[in-house]
């Protein structure tokens, strides 16, 4: 059975979706990612969808689920490379991509993950303060 490969790069996981996902494949990706985040204690997930031509409500929901589950496991998910036509369509469809962070391309997405990682470790160092003024 086809599978979408998940690459491990340091603290991060990298997924490049090369084909239009059909349901089973998308559901498997969701499950595999959650397992991998857990197993490797990953701090970030980068999903490159630049080769994806359609994101319908099902696919959108999967991306949103991945983002929310990774958050629970203390990892940030960033979706990169969404085609402009796909973005326009998603807005008209009315799909709320709850919790999904996006970036223009893989490079920008990586920057976002790294910056988030630095913020995280700084927070750990200055432990005892209860203040939390990080913008959502």
């Amino acid at each position: 059975m086809e599978k979408i490969p998940i690459l491990k790069m340091g603290d991060f996981l990298l997924v490049t979706v090369q084909i239009d996902l059909y349901d089973r494949l998308a559901l498997n990706l969701e499950a595999d990612l959650v397992n991998m985040i857990n197993k490797h204690q990953a701090k970030g997930v980068l999903i490159d969808i630049s080769a994806v031509n359609i994101v319908d409500s099902f696919m959108g929901r999967i991306l949103s689920n991945i983002a929310q589950m990774s958050k629970i496991l203390d990892a940030l998910t960033v979706v990169v490379g969404m085609q402009p036509a796909v973005a326009i369509t998603l807005i008209e469809l009315g799909l709320p991509m709850t919790g999904v962070r996006t970036a223009l391309n893989v490079e920008k997405g990586m920057e976002l993950l790294k910056r988030n990682r630095i913020l995280d470790s700084e927070e750990e160092e200055t432990t005892s303060t209860d203040e939390d003024d990080s913008a959502e």
Partner: peptide
């Protein structure tokens, strides 16, 4: 559906909208 859209040279945004609507209905 994509093939038909290409045959009449439908633009990319309209084609994406058509394919996405089709995907919802078939689902």
């Amino acid at each position: 559906v994509a093939e038909y859209a290409d045959k009449i040279k439908m633009g990319l945004v309209n084609k994406t909208k058509l394919l996405t609507a089709a995907s919802e209905l078939v689902r």
